[in-house]
Design a protein around this nucleic acid. Structure first.
Length: 273
DNA sequence: CGGCCATCCTGCACGC
DNA sequence: TGCGTGCAGGATGGCC
């Protein structure tokens, strides 16, 4: 479940390993992932030099020397294994051969990932995305104004990538707990002082997680065994049955917006009117 | 517009 | 121990 901090961690790793290298060959081991691979992907990538790696929401954008952009989304279980010595793993779907003799392998058991190539400013999967929570345009005023405009369940809204991009199940639960807002609150009824806290907490939590290289669960390493430490910092996610760190009340796991949701009913206030 | 559901897929945690 | 079942989850698309 890579979210913004995990994808950012992957970006840093890919940048270190890939920038300046030329792609000598690409092997596709199946027809596609979530979607079929684009026609002629191997040919289009072969011979290209990788110039830059960017991130938008949970997408990786790999800029080539001819203007082509390789788009990679890790879905639920995707990972890039760099300097791999082996590409025969059960779920190794894509192999990229680089001009330094190394091999990068895309492995994705659940195949919810996306790999596409495009050129220009616009891509169907990117065009509708909301602001980046760590960029300057995600201001407290912006959040206040836009929560007011909607009458939606706050958890559903924060998970909605067209509203705000990059948050997933983990960081939404963490941000709402840190702000003492119940995930079943309605966006427009959350008072200003709580929205200010929410805005602040989203940025603090994401930044701190990036600093720690993200959250890693068993079975989920990003790059050659490098793994995130933010798991140790999780205050509510996965803590069902344990005492809340703020009030010792038992943390519950409920369903909100179709998602498993962790909540402290004592600390987190439900704003519904 | 918003909520809800199904879909994609596999691994894993259950219960018997 | 081993099998079957059901669930999780990011994003989309359809339905009401």
């Amino acid at each position: 479940m890579p979210e913004l901090p995990e994808v950012e961690t992957v970006r840093t790793g890919l940048a270190r390993s890939w920038i300046g290298k030329r792609i000598d060959g690409v092997e596709l081991r199946r027809e596609g992932l979530r979607f079929p691979f684009p026609e002629g992907l191997e040919e289009r990538l072969t011979g290209r030099v990788i110039k830059q790696i960017r991130r938008r929401a949970k997408y990786l954008l790999i800029d080539m020397d001819n203007g082509d952009i390789l788009l990679s989304h890790l879905g639920m279980s995707g990972k890039w294994i760099l300097d791999s010595s082996d590409s025969e793993g059960k779920h190794d779907h894509v192999v990229i051969y680089l001009d330094d003799g190394s091999m990068s392998v895309y492995n994705d058991p659940r195949r919810f990932g996306v790999l596409d190539i495009f050129r220009g400013e616009s891509h169907k999967l990117l065009d509708h995305l909301g602001p980046e929570p760590l960029e300057d345009d995600f201001t407290c005023d912006w959040l206040l104004e836009n929560l007011k405009k909607k009458k939606r369940n706050i958890k559903a809204l924060l998970l909605d990538q067209s509203f705000l991009s990059g948050l997933g199940n983990i960081y939404v639960d963490e941000s709402l707990w840190a702000s003492n807002i119940h995930p079943n609150s309605i966006s427009c009824f959350i008072p200003k002082r709580k929205v200010i806290q929410l805005h602040n907490n989203i940025r603090i939590i994401l930044s701190e997680s990036i600093r720690q290289l993200g959250t890693t669960f068993i079975n989920f390493t990003f790059l050659n065994g490098q793994s995130g430490n933010y798991s140790n910092e999780l205050k509510i996610f996965g803590n069902q049955g344990k005492p809340c760190e703020k009030c010792l009340n038992k943390v519950k796991k409920i369903k909100v917006a179709g998602r498993g949701t962790h909540v402290c009913n004592k600390c987190q206030k439900k704003f519904k009117s």
